[in-house]
Structures are given as structure tokens and as C-alpha cells.
Design a protein around this nucleic acid. Structure first.
Lengths: 314, 314
DNA sequence: CTGTTAGCGCTTTCAG
DNA sequence: CTGAAAGCGCTAACAG
């Protein structure tokens, strides 16, 4: 049909018919049917996104950054929440295949490497953030957790803390594993006594109660690193409950520098990515777009954290 | 084709051919093509969602609740962020028409009523949350702002505050308008002196600076209501800057009861919906599903707030 | 119970 | 430059 030609302004068309078509389209309130177009072209302009939790301040910001890039390129995001449920993660990835999405983004997957590799290898293009997947299958953005934890622990050591504790996140994930492992390793390297009984983990909503348990069980703790800022905020409150002054008795460090971190009292010392969360989202989105177009310029990007020193651990 | 029949388990099929088909499908790694199916059936199983800001703690939770319902019913969410940009809101709604989504959800629209009505009338089904749209066009969930603000103001009055201030949100929205209007009205009804020069508004990220400005300009303020908890957290911090004790010198009340509200110091008194944000999302989703199926049971739901009294305004 | 046929609304190729 | 025709992978209606 000629109409198709004017819609996509390709091929040669006389200006007269062109404007005529445009007028008729307007008068009829015509809207092209994108799904018919997708069937014909085998491109959907849809990106499937798998996220463990939409309501998290961290993922929300990352998604916002990605959405901007996709929106500008005419792509739409199909967003699915795994609610930390691995079974659901499988199901979603399969549905994305049926949807013939042009690409997939997986944020902080809970799947084991071999499974994720298998599922992503069936997708047209994929980029993951902080997830374990075989090289070559997907673009890979990850955070340098060895480095970040070392910044945190050494900062505490420098201010004279000797009894460090860690409150982790109780779901399987790349960052969760790496932070915990790095905490243990860094503390050992410093030649401190074992911290094995000063570690605990919890759901992201349970920082308050869990930190409190930990501080009661190990009252010698004078420095606490938490998996993220929500948990750290709970820890701050737990210290208040127990009459432990922050930072005098216990110093607290979180992760992510969420918007409210600086507004807490005491304001929260935290590890912030060297790029904003929006930029990370944008980066992931751009990497995916490159892969969709078949011209990936980079397969792996590692992002460092920097320490934002505030009142809770000066 | 018979294959279609087994996929949708409809029509009568012998068990033998059925399992045979299933086996072949598995061996070939076959995935049905949902876009072809959509073309044929004129149903996409896609829901378009328009949200002012994905990264907000409030919308994130609402979306999470909606996603659960949609996921359970086989629907996927197409999520688009307006970034508070009305032009983008138009564009998104038009793209959703082209995507032939089965329904649309609009959260806290910035569009004027007539425009939103026009755009939504072209959609197959629509539900809005806190947005102005003509009756009959879309399902409507809204919060009772007259009531919520009255709870806040009267709570402050009861504790002896007489110089009330308000920090609003500087984008056009139903809740923004209604809260501000209700604040003025409620204060007037109480017979207090005008609060006109004790009001200010700001971006959701600027609560700290803006509250500080306000408190410097109107140092008599002894009670402050804020449009949301992020802004209120900034106000708490502004009080600290200025040496105003909370709640002794100034009482502060926020809105939404975001997760961190109870972890702030002092913990934040806030207005919380009678249903959780997840439930509100689920409600909106269910209302849309009913409309898609053509059997809406309710056109309008009004939700009240309740006051959660914490340390910042006891 | 199972095979055949005609579209769904577009793009693409090939003639005119 | 503009029509006509085939086909994307499915569903639905109709025969067998």
C-alpha cells in the first residue's frame, strides 16, 4: 500500500499524495496498528525488563534512567516484577520470548548462572545488571563489590573501630554474595579477629529488628556495614532503641545513597556508585540498543563505588 | 490448525493427538507468537501504564500491587514515565492506542480534565488514580484530601499549634491542588489568622531547602504539613539546621507513610491510606480488568487516610 | 474429533 | 511514482 510508504517516509512519493494521505488519516482519526506492523517486520520495539522489586528506591531510579533512553528511541518497556521469586523469573523470561521482545534487561537476578545463561541465550539481545551469566551471551554491567566493601571497612578501621559487623540481604544475588564475601575477606586481611558471629542477614524491610538482634547478640560491635540504605536506616533506629550513640558508640555505613540517606538523623554515610542510578539505567539501556542493532561496543562495564562520608560514620 | 486448539485447550481433542502435539512442541523448542495471536484476536494482554515518576517510593509500591494482579491474569504492563512532562503524557497515550493495549492506567495525571477525558475515551478501558476525568470515561480511584488534611490540621490544633505552614508540591495534580486548597480551608474554618504567607511549594527533591526558606521567612510557624514524606524528611532536616526542635518548637506531618517514615529521627507523623499502597495498586488493576471484561462493578472508589501519630507530631 | 480456509493490518516485493 | 499481491503466525468458522 502507498499508505505504508508515507507512514515510514520511505520510497519516493509525490508531495501531493503525501499530504493528501496525511489529511485523510487525520480526519479519520487513524492510528497505525503497531502489532500488525510487528508481525510483518519481526520487530516489536518492546524491551522486556525483569526486576526483583519495583518498589525499591534503587531499582526505581535505574528504571527511570533506562526508560528515558528507550522512550527517546521509540521503545517501550514491558516491566515485570519477580517479587524475589525465582520461579516467576523463569516464567517471565519465557513470556518475553513469546512476546518477541527486541531485547531483555535483567536487574539483579536471583537465578543461578547456568539457568540465566540458558534463558538469555534464547533472547534476541540481553543486558544484565549485577547478575551471573556466561560471557558473550549478554551485555554485563556490574558493580565492583570487592572495592566498595574495602572502602567501607577501611574507613571504619581508620576511625579506630575494631569490632565490625555486617547486616546482609537474605536473597541470593550477585551483590549480596559479593558484599558478604568481601566483608569477611577485608576484615581478615586487616588481621582482625573473626567476624563470623557479627554477621546476620534479613529482608530489606527488616533492618530495624535484625540489626537490633545483632547488636544485642554482639554488643562489642562498634562499626556496622549494611547491605543497603533501607537496612542501614533500620540499624540507626536500632542503635537509638538500645541507647548506642551513632557515631560515637557505633558507626553505620549503608549502600546506594538513596535520596533519603542524607536526610536521616544522623545523616547516613553510604557507598554511592560513581555514576548516578539514572545513568546506570541509561547505560544499560544504551548497551541493549547497541546489541539490538548488532554493533555492541562493549560487553562488560564495571562500576566503582565512592564513599559518601556523612554523620553516621565520619 | 489443530495446534491452536491444544494451545488454548478449547474444542474437543483426543488425548493422543494432544500429547503428541505437546511433545513435538517441546522438542522443537516452539514458543507461540503472541503478537500474531494478538493480531488475530484483537486482544493484546497488555496494559499501558502512565506514571509521573517511576522512582517515587509511592508509585513504586502502587505499581508493585498492580503488577501482581496483572501477572496473575496473564497481562503485562507497558510502563511509561512522563517525568512530569505533560507533552510526553499525550505522546504516551497515543502510542498506547497504536499498541492496541487492552487497557490503560493513569496515575496522578498532570493533564487538564478535558484533555485527559479526550485521550482516555479512545482507549478500550481505563482507570485513573487521583486524576481529573469526566465521569463514565474511566474507573476512578481517588483519595479524600479534604478529609486527610482536616485530620492533619486538627491534630496540630489539638496539640496547641496556632501558626501552621504548608509545603506543597509544585506540579499540577489532583492531590497537590486538593491538599493545598483543603489546608487553606481547614485553617480558615478553625478561625485562625490567614496562612497565606506560610505556604510554599517545591519539587519533590527540594523539601530541605524549601522548608528552610519557609521557616526563615515565617519563624512563627509551629506546625508544618508537607505534601509528602520526602518533603517532610527535608523539613525535619531544615528544622535541625535552624535549631528548631521537633516536635517541641515545630511539629511536622507528612503524607504517604513511605517505608522510611518510621525510621527517621524523630519518626514521622504521617497520613497513610486506609489501604496499603500495594492494595491500592491491586484495586486499580482489578477495576481495569473488570472494565476490560465489560462488567465494571464500581466506577468510583474514594479512599480515606488515617493519621499515623509518631514522634514528629505527637 | 481434525483438516481447510479466510482473514487480522501491516510491510515488502514486484509490476505497471 | 503508485498499485497489486503475497505473507508474517495466529484464530475462527466451516466442512469433513
Amino acid at each position: 500500500m502507498t499508505v505504508s510508504r508515507v507512514l515510514n517516509n520511505k520510497g519516493e512519493i509525490s508531495e501531493t499524495t503525501r499530504t493528501h494521505v496525511l489529511n485523510v488519516m487525520r480526519d479519520l482519526g487513524y492510528r497505525p496498528n503497531r502489532i500488525a506492523r510487528s508481525l510483518a517486520t519481526a520487530r516489536t520495539l518492546k524491551i522486556g525488563i525483569v526486576v526483583p522489586s519495583i518498589s525499591s528506591a534503587y531499582f526505581g531510579s535505574v528504571l527511570e534512567g533506562a526508560e528515558r533512553i528507550f522512550g527517546d528511541s521509540g521503545y517501550h518497556m514491558l516491566l515485570c516484577n519477580t517479587a524475589q521469586n525465582t520461579k516467576r523469573e523463569y516464567a517471565i523470561l519465557e513470556l518475553f520470548e513469546e512476546d518477541r521482545v527486541d531485547g531483555v534487561i535483567v536487574l539483579s537476578s536471583h537465578m543461578p548462572q547456568d539457568e540465566l545463561t540458558l534463558y538469555l541465550s534464547k533472547q534476541r539481545a540481553a543486558v544484565v545488571l549485577n547478575s551471573d551469566v556466561e560471557a558473550g551471551i549478554a551485555g554485563h554491567v556490574m558493580t565492583n563489590e570487592r572495592n566498595s566493601m574495602s572502602l567501607a571497612v577501611n574507613h571504619l578501621l581508620k576511625s579506630g573501630r575494631r569490632h565490625l559487623g555486617y547486616v546482609g540481604h537474605d536473597v541470593p544475588s550477585y551483590a549480596g554474595r559479593e558484599r558478604q564475601r568481601s566483608f569477611v575477606a577485608t576484615v581478615e586481611e586487616a588481621g582482625l579477629s573473626s567476624c563470623a558471629n557479627r554477621m546476620i542477614s534479613c529482608d530489606r524491610r527488616d533492618g530495624h529488628m535484625t540489626a537490633r538482634q545483632l547488636l544485642e547478640r554482639a554488643p562489642e560491635i562498634d562499626g556496622l556495614v549494611c547491605f543497603n540504605d533501607e537496612i542501614a536506616a533500620g540499624a540507626l533506629r536500632a542503635c537509638l532503641d538500645l541507647g548506642r550513640r551513632v557515631p560515637d558508640d557505633v558507626a553505620v555505613i549503608g549502600y546506594d545513597d538513596i535520596f533519603l540517606a542524607k536526610l536521616l538523623t544522623p545523616s547516613l554515610t553510604t557507598l554511592r556508585l560513581e555514576r548516578t542510578k539514572q545513568e546506570v539505567g541509561a547505560l544499560v539501556a544504551r548497551m541493549l540498543l547497541e546489541r539490538i542493532e548488532g554493533s555492541p561496543t562493549q560487553d562488560e562495564v564495571m562500576i566503582n563505588h565512592e564513599l559518601v562520608v556523612r554523620e553516621s560514620a565520619p
